[in-house]
Measured scan of single mutants.
Amino acid sequence: MAAGGDHGSPDSYRSPLASRYASPEMCFVFSDRYKFRTWRQLWLWLAEAEQTLGLPITDEQIQEMKSNLENIDFKMAAEEEKRLRHDVMAHVHTFGHCCPKAAGIIHLGATSCYVGDNTDLIILRNALDLLLPKLARVISRLADFAKERASLPTLGFTHFQPAQLTTVGKRCCLWIQDLCMDLQNLKRVRDDLRFRGVKGTTGTQASFLQLFEGDDHKVEQLDKMVTEKAGFKRAFIITGQTYTRKVDIEVLSVLASLGASVHKICTDIRLLANLKEMEEPFEKQQIGSSAMPYKRNPMRSERCCSLARHLMTLVMDPLQTASVQWFERTLDDSANRRICLAEAFLTADTILNTLQNISEGLVVYPKVIERRIRQELPFMATENIIMAMVKAGGSRQDCHEKIRVLSQQAASVVKQEGGDNDLIERIQVDAYFSPIHSQLDHLLDPSSFTGRASQQVQRFLEEEVYPLLKPYESVMKVKAELCL
């Protein structure tokens, strides 16, 4: 049975990233139509530049190519590739079939990587351009969430054990800070992308030097003109047959890092959902379990974690691919890159769409948070109580021993009897502590235990987050809708 299948058929496997999760716009960027249309555009740009620099290419040939950029006979191309065992030459023939007058000058002087690699770089750039505003929107939604809850005390956790208090907004800023680093890295790697350009079979530009009869300047002009037509500021000066596969490492490393950030955020949300302090959106008709109707599973956060793990592992592909590119190139890269580049971007696209949807509907339960604080705060307040007693004339050592005994009794009630923490009640009825009984409410005010959390939130948002989001103001209103 021949390899390949009808990918629109229910009898043929289709990647869930495309069929179930990723956005239509990201799927289109990695589609065959987008790819092969870009090949034709690159052939047109090459012909236009070659004509401008004096090669015998007519206006009629150029116009014929322009008129057929979208006229792609995919069936013919597939048949040609089956016959020739070469995808680029299959599309040269297919393009030439609908451009008979231009057929002889299509791909003039070029090698397969002229269309293959340059198209990949265009796709990487455009895919990054799709991700950047999506990530900015996630940051914006979380920034709104953090600002609104900047002063809401909550129990902090280290080692997932109760620690000092923080605020809900401050905790959210930990998430935002990681995503801001990801946004900066995505922008950097996007701006650092260079075009492969017009380089020939081993990167020496020998074929173009021959076409222009040894004119170095025209060869350099050709490279520059096509690079500018493709919208790049610069091209690699040095290439082998391909652009260095280190570029793929750079791009997928940034995406993998984004995956790590999203995994951490969504894990926190899942843990908070278990504590009943916070939940992701839950639709009115949504079913959490087929057997347990009360369940409210954090399905979206779980999906993000599941896909983020996949995204983090994909960076190993370009690392290994770059390491086995012998001399000017081997074909070890080809099949692998067809999979890992598309999957990385479709996965990143999915987790950003999902995280935006989550961040637009996060639900906080202040009463649950308050109750958990009441359970733990008495123990945390013991040092403040000791200091207040010393100020009232008591002995630190005597007070410490009193607190120690009462704390152990209260802990026994919590752990052995399943009761509430009654340390404060014990202190309130103990005559030894009568000098500070009137101060206990103040000493137990949760806001006095959150330090500068709310001020940190305000400063972080104003100095770091809002300036970073400013270039994306025009796209901030787009909502994230999930079908599944």
Rank of each mutant, 00 (worst) to 15 (best):
G5A: 08
C27S: 15
C27L: 12
Y34C: 12
L44S: 08
A47E: 03
A47M: 02
L55E: 10
Q61P: 07
Q63R: 12
S67I: 11
N71H: 12
I72K: 01
M76T: 10
E81D: 07
K82P: 13
R85M: 14
H86G: 03
D87S: 00
H93Q: 15
T94K: 06
C98I: 12
A102N: 05
I105P: 08
I105T: 12
I106E: 00
C113G: 12
Y114F: 10
G116H: 00
D117K: 00
N118Q: 02
D120H: 08
D120F: 07
L121M: 08
I123K: 05
R125I: 05
D129P: 02
D144K: 15
D144E: 14
S151D: 10
Q164W: 04
T167E: 01
G169T: 01
W175T: 04
D182G: 03
K187R: 12
R188C: 06
D191M: 10
G197H: 02
K199A: 14
T201Y: 01
G203D: 01
F212Y: 05
D216C: 09
H217S: 11
K218A: 12
V219D: 07
K229L: 11
F232D: 00
R234L: 11
Q241M: 01
K246F: 04
S253Q: 09
V254F: 10
H263I: 10
K264Y: 03
T267P: 06
S289H: 02
S290R: 02
P293Y: 04
Y294C: 02
K295G: 00
R296K: 07
V315I: 12
Q320T: 12
S323L: 02
R337V: 02
R337P: 04
R338D: 02
A344E: 06
T347V: 08
T354S: 15
Q356C: 15
Q356A: 12
N357H: 08
I358A: 14
S359V: 09
L362I: 12
I373F: 03
R374F: 06
R374E: 03
Q375R: 03
L377K: 03
I385W: 05
M389D: 09
S395K: 08
V405R: 13
L406A: 10
S412N: 15
V414G: 04
E417L: 12
E417P: 04
E417H: 01
D420E: 05
N421M: 08
N421I: 08
R426K: 10
V429T: 15
Y432R: 08
L443D: 00
D445T: 15
S447T: 13
S448G: 14
G451R: 03
Q456D: 02
L461S: 04
Y466I: 14
L469C: 13
K470A: 13
V475H: 14
L482C: 08
L484E: 13
